[in-house]
């Protein structure tokens, strides 16, 4: 029983870490490409926050799964099928509108999650969450500000936001999926009930999209599989780029 329990917490912790790392890397890909210098540094600041969250959660995962792996082992030495991030975070940056929509959807989820995790019975996760809440609150506010301006901006910006929303919306279903792992950690009070997160997420997103004159898309298809290691095509390319240096020069430092 104990080993099953420890296993669920480790997988849960790894999912959160992978979400943070992959989203961080996607944002880091904007470095030197953002529409303005100001947003270049804003997006990479958020990327760095997320990288810090990922590192803390990898360190906790290594204790929970008993492997003692390093943060680099998790980030650079696993293959695509071993990553258990959700599909939303790995979606390509696209234009600035798509990146902002992805960030709004992700940060709203992450803020609700970190808030819930501050009362986790896993004291280390609770401590990581307490720090992460402030960071994710800023990420959400940043994405909200831009959503309002682009959604309720020019015809062009509105059209691009609508298109981004239509592309990314189906991937949000997966954020709140339940499986043996989420049920187990909820039982242990390590993690929250995904349904509770969904309620908070729905309320906020609906309000912001409304204020931004954007319609909440209807449900079309429900892509899933990220938590099982089944990813979208773009993810493999991202990983190859992210891991190339570490794998070509193992243990390299600079």
């Amino acid at each position: 029983m104990t080993s099953v329990v420890a296993g669920a917490a480790a997988v849960y912790s790894l999912r959160i870490a992978d979400d943070c790392l992959v989203l961080s890397h996607r944002l880091a890909q904007w470095s030197s490409w953002a529409p303005t210098l100001e947003d270049d540094i804003a997006l990479t600041n958020i990327a760095l926050d997320l990288l810090g969250q990922a590192r803390a959660m990898y360190a906790r995962t290594a204790e929970l799964d008993g492997t003692g792996r390093s943060e680099d082992d998790y980030a650079f030495m696993r293959d695509e099928r071993e990553f258990v991030n959700c599909l939303l975070v790995e979606q390509e940056n696209g234009d600035f509108a798509k990146t902002i929509v992805r960030q709004l959807l992700c940060s709203t989820y992450q803020l609700a999650l970190w808030q819930a995790l501050t009362t986790s019975t896993d004291e280390q996760i609770a401590a990581i969450a307490a720090k992460a809440v402030k960071e994710s609150a800023y990420h959400r506010d940043h994405a909200t500000d831009w959503t309002l301006r682009l959604g309720d901006g020019t015809d062009e910006s509105h059209r691009r936001m609508e298109s981004a929303l239509a592309t990314l919306w189906p991937f949000t279903i997966e954020l709140f999926e339940q499986d043996a792992v989420t049920r187990e950690v909820r039982e242990l009070r390590v993690g929250p009930d995904p349904d509770d997160l969904r309620a908070a997420w729905d309320a906020y997103i609906t309000r912001v999209l409304g204020d931004a004159t954007l319609a909440v898309p209807g449900t079309s298809w429900k892509p899933t599989g990220g938590r099982e290691g089944l990813h979208t095509e773009a993810f493999g390319y991202m990983l190859a780029e992210m891991q190339h240096l570490h794998r070509s020069f193992p243990g390299v430092t600079w």
Binding site: T36, L37, E38, I41, A42, N45, D141, D145, W146, R149
Partner: peptide, 20 residues
């Protein structure tokens, strides 16, 4: 200094650019 479309975004950008 920095470029921003309005005061709120300017404040946010200033936070990101100048208080890191």
């Amino acid at each position: 200094s920095l470029h921003a479309p309005d005061a709120e975004i300017a404040l946010r950008d200033a936070r990101d650019v100048y208080t890191r």
